[in-house]
């Protein structure tokens, strides 16, 4: 489904990703863990198509297409969704209006019929119920004046509404209290599906208690240095990231 091969990415003249390879199949949940500065957020941003990320080597193939060739809105229409680490506040743009514009832009691009406001609102109500979110959220401007937790939940709400095939969660757990964390995890778990894949980027193991991954990868210094099942996350939690570095050194010796 998603094949990242030997990806090198440079940001502001600095090499951040240095040969990252990863394969994600439909239905799988992959956790990417790693210390600060390892390149975790760069991975999310380069997959979503943010400007300023220069791919110097390697490839990303998504459902047979060269993902790196696509504009951000084309990637969205192809089913790629990034839940932002820092969701952007957009004063003056109503949340409902924004979501309908986004959903219909994607549908139009895919050659599907656009939803009228009745159909759209019906879909919104279903998703709100699943996520235990209040209606009030819809009438506000996008993320404006939202608390940190509300912003992250709004990201998950957008994901639920847009129904992507690949959802990349960039440190969605950061800054969340335990209740908000559980709500975010519930939202993700409700969307787990044999046709949908998740890449969960996180610094802490805590989120993985609630979103149980099929694979855990450790990203350090721009590449994946260790992969395993969910027990790897527990080992990391116990020993810290330095444990990986030491093991690598030992292996090299």
């Amino acid at each position: 489904m998603l094949t990242i091969d030997n990806l090198h990415v440079r940001v502001a003249g600095k090499d951040i990703l240095k040969g990252l390879s990863l394969k994600v199949n439909a239905g799988e949940v992959h956790a990417i863990m790693g210390p600060n500065g390892a390149g975790k957020s760069t991975l999310g941003n380069v997959l979503a198509g943010r400007e300023g990320y220069e791919v110097t080597q390697g490839s990303v193939v998504w459902n047979g297409k060269d993902l790196l060739e696509l504009e951000p809105e084309e990637r969205a229409a192809e089913g790629v969704f990034l839940a932002f680490q820092y969701p952007v506040e957009i004063p003056g743009v109503n949340n409902t209006y924004f979501l309908r514009a986004a959903l219909n832009a994607q549908r139009k691009r895919r050659g599907e019929a656009e939803l009228d406001s009745m159909q759209f609102l019906k879909r919104v109500r279903e998703k709100l119920a699943v996520l235990h979110l209040k209606d009030e959220l819809l009438h506000r401007a996008v993320n404006e004046g939202f608390s940190g937790g509300e912003k992250k939940r709004n990201e998950i709400f957008q994901m639920a509404l847009l129904e992507p095939k690949l959802a990349i969660l960039d440190e969605t757990d950061s800054g969340l209290d335990i209740d908000a964390l559980k709500m975010v995890a519930d939202g993700v778990n409700a969307m787990r599906d044999p046709a949908r894949a998740f890449v969960v980027i996180t610094h802490y193991q805590r989120l993985l208690d609630y979103i149980v991954p099929d694979f855990v990868h450790v990203l350090a210094d721009g590449r994946i240095v260790e992969s395993g099942d969910k027990s790897l996350a527990l080992k990391l939690e116990e020993h810290g990231y330095s444990w990986i570095a030491e093991r690598k050194l030992a292996g090299a010796a």
Binding site: A48, G49, R50, E51, E71, P72, E73, R75, A76, A77, F81, L82, F84, P87, V88, I90, F98, L99, A101, A102, L103, A105, Q106, R109, Q158, L162
Partner: peptide, 13 residues
Amino acid sequence: GALFYLRSRGIGP
């Protein structure tokens, strides 16, 4: 930042 946010959700530039 706001432009990219909207585009990442599928809205054209």
